[in-house]
């Protein structure tokens, strides 16, 4: 792929049994300035092993992720899916995102719409943003969903293992978990619903460099996803 175009590397997770659609360009403008030039997809299993590589026609309005992955990856469990996009540089400073639709087939739970987590790129030098992209947080609703929560974290680096710190807050107390993630590995770290009678209020993820991160919630009995949302960069 060309490195003279503006690149963006985003990540999501695919599980069997869900309708999972991704919209590569969320906001097309009439003059096509926000032009997606190329989109490559790579898929990695839970051990970081590369399973699939393919290109998507950048003119496609919707990528049917389940249609592409369900056949070759049946029985594989959850996989990490990377979208390596190249845009016309004029697209910036608007930071492009892919957007996703996720719904367990046959489930009465409502579908989930989410922004695919953009991990590498999207902060061109000329913008000069210097936020702390490797320190992210998520606030839970005060009336929490009746679900089992967890964070999904993936290391998208090529060569470097990352020590990731996940802190869950419950009123004045907190629970700290650590995970060691070699390149392209991902982990699901459960977040207890309460501690000492206090409900889960927020979670923070700290890493030496930016990870792919999502907060998820699964319905108690079925395990169906009822929350799938990426964390947000923390600004003081």
């Amino acid at each position: 792929m060309s490195s003279s175009l503006s690149p963006l590397l985003s990540a999501t997770f695919w599980e069997d049994g869900y309708d999972h659609l991704v919209e590569p360009v969320h906001q097309r403008d009439a003059q096509a300035r926000r032009h997606l030039a190329a989109l490559d997809v790579s898929v990695f299993d839970g051990n970081g092993k590369r399973l699939l590589d393919f290109s998507v026609d950048p003119r496609d309005e919707v990528v049917d992720l389940d249609g592409l992955l369900a056949g070759p990856l049946a029985g594989r469990g959850r996989v990490l899916v990377l979208f390596d996009a190249r845009y016309d540089p004029q697209i910036f400073p608007y930071r492009p995102h892919h957007y996703g639709y996720l719904h367990r087939r046959g489930s009465p739970a409502p579908p989930l719409y989410y922004a695919v987590n953009a991990v590498l790129g999207g902060v061109p030098d000329r913008i000069g943003a210097t936020g702390m992209n490797n320190f992210e947080t998520y606030l839970f609703r005060q009336q929490a969903l009746p679900a089992r929560h967890a964070v999904l974290v993936a290391n998208l680096s090529r060569f470097t293992t990352a020590e990731v710190q996940v802190t869950a807050y419950y009123g004045r107390s907190k629970v700290l978990e650590r995970a060691t993630l070699p390149p392209k590995l991902h982990a699901e770290l459960p977040l207890p619903a309460e501690r000492e009678g206090q409900p889960l209020e927020r979670v923070e993820i700290k890493a030496p460099f930016r990870m792919a991160t999502y907060v998820i919630g699964r319905q108690g009995q079925s395990g169906d996803l009822v929350l799938f949302d990426h964390l947000f960069t923390y600004f003081r």
Binding site: A129, R158, T160, P208, F209, R210
Partner: peptide, 20 residues
């Protein structure tokens, strides 16, 4: 000169940059 902020913007490549 044009790359002095490599690794410092989105930070996603910082680990690989230090490794290389």
């Amino acid at each position: 000169p044009e790359a002095d902020r490599t690794g410092k913007l989105c930070t996603g490549c910082m680990g690989d940059l230090q490794y290389l």
